[in-house]
Simulated assay, not measured.
Amino acid sequence: MLIPRFFGESLLDDWMKDPWNSTRTAPEKANARKVSVMRTDIREKGDNYVLDMELPGYKKENISVKLENGTLTVQAIGSEESREEENGFLRQERYAGSCARSFYIGEALRQEDIQARFENGILTLVFPKQPAPQPEQSKYISIEG
């Protein structure tokens, strides 16, 4: 059977490919989608690490930062209340719901060692490179801003 040239070599294989990111493998594409929310930069600044996380559209009250067994977890919960009023849209791309990311930062850190600030849609966490060796159970970190 002859297939028109615009379908490429294999009709079914081409339908399964992503035309915009065809050089990426399937796991890379999945990771690219996950990272599109809560994009994070981690850098060194003096004796501290600074973690900057994008959380556009979220309010400070809807963000929680938790330290448990050396794992720092950031969770953001978006409300869909304002979106229920919108009717008649043809395409919906804005994200509403919850998302979370976790980072292992060491079991020696305590809640008091971590500073958090939320400003202009950016959550900034600052914590020391060499914390005092006093592990502690899970606690929430307050966010300034």
Rank of each mutant, 00 (worst) to 15 (best):
M1W: 09
I3F: 15
P4E: 15
F7P: 10
G8H: 06
G8Q: 05
E9G: 13
E9K: 13
S10Y: 05
L11E: 10
D14E: 15
M16F: 15
D18G: 08
W20M: 08
N21S: 10
S22L: 14
A26G: 12
P27E: 05
E28G: 09
K29N: 11
V37E: 04
M38T: 01
M38G: 06
R39S: 07
R39T: 12
R43F: 08
K45Q: 09
G46P: 04
L51N: 00
D52R: 06
E54I: 10
P56H: 03
Y58W: 11
K60D: 00
K60Y: 01
E61Y: 03
N62W: 07
I63R: 00
V65T: 01
V65D: 13
V65L: 09
N69Q: 08
T73K: 13
V74F: 03
R83E: 12
E86Q: 15
F89D: 03
L90Y: 13
R91F: 14
E93F: 04
R101M: 10
R110W: 00
Q115P: 03
A116N: 03
E119T: 04
I122R: 00
I122F: 05
T124N: 13
V126F: 08
K129M: 07
Q130H: 08
P131L: 01
P135A: 04
K139E: 11
I141T: 13
S142N: 07
G145V: 06
